[in-house]
Design a binder for these strands. Structure first.
Length: 109
DNA sequence: GAACTGACTCAGC
DNA sequence: GGCTGAGCCAGTT
């Protein structure tokens, strides 16, 4: 539907809708916005996340790994942010991911 | 201007 | 059930 690349804004907006203490995935966002581009562009969009006040720490890859932690100020910043919200993180992976996973498609739609 | 790379995912083996 | 290859778009070399 959206031919423009303003979906960057949409991505940011969806991420902001993620409740504290919950996490979502790049693929889930891509599916919700019907991005033919796929999850990869969601990740690319997150490059400007810090500029848009987006809680990027709540976005992980499909298995719950903090694949984007290197883009935060420090290697542990992402994990600490999640733990502040009550999300248990171990070995760069979100524990109990299946239960904490927040899917915009089923939660918002 | 072609080739590479990246905060990913899925299908196939 | 873990590894490999292919596909997606955009920015960089």
């Amino acid at each position: 539907m959206p031919e423009n690349r303003d979906y960057f804004e949409d991505v940011y907006q969806v991420v902001r809708l993620v409740p504290p203490g919950r996490v979502t995935t790049y693929g889930a966002i891509a599916r919700y916005l019907s991005l033919r581009a796929g999850a990869r562009m969601v990740g690319w969009a997150m490059n400007g996340a810090h500029v848009h006040d987006v809680p990027a720490h709540r976005v992980v890859n499909r298995v719950g790994v903090l694949s984007g932690k290197h883009h935060f100020g420090s290697p542990t910043a992402m994990q600490e942010l999640l733990e502040q919200e009550g999300v248990r993180v171990e070995e760069d992976r979100v524990q109990n991911f299946g239960q904490l996973f927040w899917d915009p498609v089923s939660e918002l739609d």
